[in-house]
Write a protein that binds this DNA or RNA. Structure first.
Length: 574
RNA sequence: CGGGUUGUAGCGCAGUUCGGUAGCGCGCUUGGUUCGGGACCAAGAGGUCGAGAGUUCAAAUCUCUCCAGCCCGACCA
């Protein structure tokens, strides 16, 4: 490809709206342009890399026995109503009506669509197992899109859905995807950690996220350096001891606490430790209030609470609601006397003796509150947030915390959709059964952004060979020098046979070309300039390195062959 | 949805306090000189100043309304 013919609008200055390196570089290198908040155009250069990533994904998915198909981006709302998610999805699902007044949805995810395809076309155990996938556009009307391609509203995702006759089959599919994912990210030159993730109602080891460790990641991960335990803080369970208290339960009494409401204020007021308090939080779970209890020195993890409560939507109650429910302003809620409202207690609460809680009356707290004696709870569960330094649940060593970008997620869905949408097949024994599902996603754009986030320097992107938009760039230093141009054209024609080559034939100064080449980040750079004029040799430099090699045409072609073979091996499918 | 902030040429910005008919750098076009790390000289093109309404002889500038972008928050009693 000739540079002069290609649309590569590089930018000298940093776009002011970009915050993170990958976003700045994708804009500066002319890979993408924004159309509106969370909506991006992939320009020719960016699209080439996108296609390479999707090619790798396809190879690995197909290799793992999955089959690609292409459902429409627009889904009829009926399917969503059937699964019960139409009302539960919230505003991130964009809805609209067509000219016939039919309700439609821009697919934010495709469980329903795939389940429906299977329901209509699969009727026998002979058709199973199946793993179907698409690489398609998704739309989620995010509250706040940010970081460019990292968190978009419209984005490209590979999502796969597996259907098996039994759990053993699901496990096999899951493991195949796990392997495929490791291969995909390795081939893209990304180093990722598979971490234990929240698995919703399924529990167990049925959910892993593939995380790229990065400062700009939006997820928090804890990792144990001694045994290797890695988990998303949404689900990580710290090891904690709850020693039996030596105190004997005392008589419940009230204490006036005018305007003392936070744990800090209360700790100071009562001259005690946060561990003495039972923090009482009021949440609204699927429209109904619930009470969450936790020891004063800990925080509630809403994902865990949501799971413990079996809720789909969970949000903290507003101040007004708190007043309505407890009869007291925020800061004075407590479990004693709460009726007809579900109470979920953290496992830290039942062992407490002579605790302090709000009295559900303004400016009043209760002391010597004893769980079981003074109040009951529906369920005790681990609903606590984990923090850096908490102990590893496996080996009890302190955990480290870091940020990660979620580029992939695999998890076992179970029967959720085959139940709600009533999908059945006839098993060997002649009985109707429901297939068990798994779900496996990869954010394609996010993968590219993560690679750039992980592989760049102050001058620009450093592409891994496997997903670079081109393998080689040729820079004739002076286009008005016919000798150089002649040699460049000849070299270009030769290399083009085996490689993807970008020839910078623009009438620009050498400095401009070098800087653009660095920005764009093509792995191999060949300069045709003074060394050619002097001794008929080419200069070869790798984007990732500093050294330059001066080589004759024959040596150059051989050297490129070596480098390419080496790189290809590094990112190969095996 | 709340708080903050910004909308002026393709990009980055000044001009708004104190109204007088729009400017700088980069980029772009043409010509020339240059040519190995973002050259120089000269001449140009390019703007409904986010939108609308109002005040005024006169509005980028003052008033009101709306829209959009960005950042923070929407989480701990």
């Amino acid at each position: 490809m000739l540079y002069s013919k290609m649309l590569i609008p590089t930018l000298r200055e940093e776009p002011k709206d970009a915050e993170i390196d990958s976003h700045k570089l994708m804009l500066r290198a002319g890979l993408v342009r924004k159309s509106a908040a969370g909506l991006y155009t992939f320009l020719p250069l960016g699209f080439r890399s996108l296609l390479k990533v999707t090619r790798i994904i396809r190879e690995e998915m197909n290799n793992a026995g999955a089959q690609e198909l292409l459902p429409p981006f627009v889904t009829p709302a009926d399917l969503w109503k059937e699964s019960g998610r139409f009302d539960k999805m919230g505003k991130e699902m964009l809805r609209f009506k067509d000219r016939h007044d039919n309700e439609m949805v821009l697919g934010p995810t495709h469980e329903e669509a795939f389940t429906n395809i299977v329901r209509e076309n699969v009727h026998s155990y002979r058709d199973l197992p199946l793993n179907l996938y698409q690489i398609n556009t998704k739309f989620r009307d995010e509250i706040r899109p940010r970081y460019g391609i990292m968190r978009c509203r419209e984005f490209i995702m590979k999502d796969a859905y597996s259907f098996d006759a039994d759990e053993a089959g699901l496990e096999a599919n899951y493991q195949a995807m796990r392997t495929a994912y490791r291969n995909i990210f390795r081939r893209c030159g990304l180093s990722v950690d598979p971490v234990l993730a929240d698995s919703g109602s399924m529990g167990g080891s049925g959910s892993e996220e593939f995380m790229v460790p990065s400062q700009v990641g939006e997820e928090m991960i804890v990792k144990c350096n001694s045994c290797g335990y890695v988990a998303n803080t949404e689900r990580a369970a710290a090891y904690r001891e709850y020693p039996e208290s030596k105190e004997t339960p005392e008589v419940l009494s009230e204490t006036s606490t005018p305007s003392v409401r936070t744990i800090d204020e209360l700790t100071a007021f009562f001259k005690t430790t946060p561990q003495k308090f039972i923090k009482t939080l009021i949440y609204i779970a699927d429209g109904a209030p619930i009470v969450a209890l936790i020891r004063g020195d800990m925080d509630v993890n809403e994902v865990k609470l949501k799971n413990a409560a079996g809720a789909i939507e969970l949000e903290l109650a507003s101040e007004d609601k708190v007043y309505e429910i407890t009869g007291a302003p925020v800061g004075f809620a407590g479990p004693v006397g709460i009726k007809k409202i579900r109470i979920i207690a953290d496992i830290s609460v039942p062992p407490m003796v002579n605790a302090i809680t709000g009295a559900n009356r303004k400016d009043l707290h209760l002391v010597n509150v004893n769980p079981g004696r003074d109040f009951e709870w529906e369920k005790a569960a681990d609903i606590q947030s984990i923090r850096e330094g908490d102990l590893c649940p496996e080996c009890r060593k302190p955990l480290n915390a870091y940020h990660g970008i979620e580029v992939g997620h695999i998890f076992k869905l179970g029967y959720k959709y085959t139940d709600s949408m009533n999908v059945v097949f006839l098993d060997k024994d002649g009985k109707e059964k429901k297939p068990i599902m798994g779900c496996y996603g990869i954010g394609v754009g996010r993968t590219i952004a993560s690679v750039i986030e992980q592989s760049h320097d102050e001058n620009g992107i450093i592409w891994p060979m496997s997903i670079a938009p081109f393998h080689i760039s040729i820079i004739p230093v002076n286009v008005s020098d016919e000798t150089l141009m002649e040699a460049s054209r000849k070299l270009y024609a030769a290399l083009k046979q085996n490689y993807e080559v970008l020839m910078d034939d623009r009438d620009e100064r050498a400095g401009v070309k070098f800087n653009d080449a660095d920005l764009i980040g093509i792995p191999i750079r060949i300069t045709v300039g003074k060394t050619f004029a002097a001794e008929g040799k080419f200069e070869l430099k790798l984007r990732a390195g500093k050294d330059k090699e001066v080589l004759s045409e024959t040596d150059l072609i051989r050297r490129i062959g070596e480098i390419y073979a080496e790189e290809t091996a590094k990112y190969s499918g095996n």
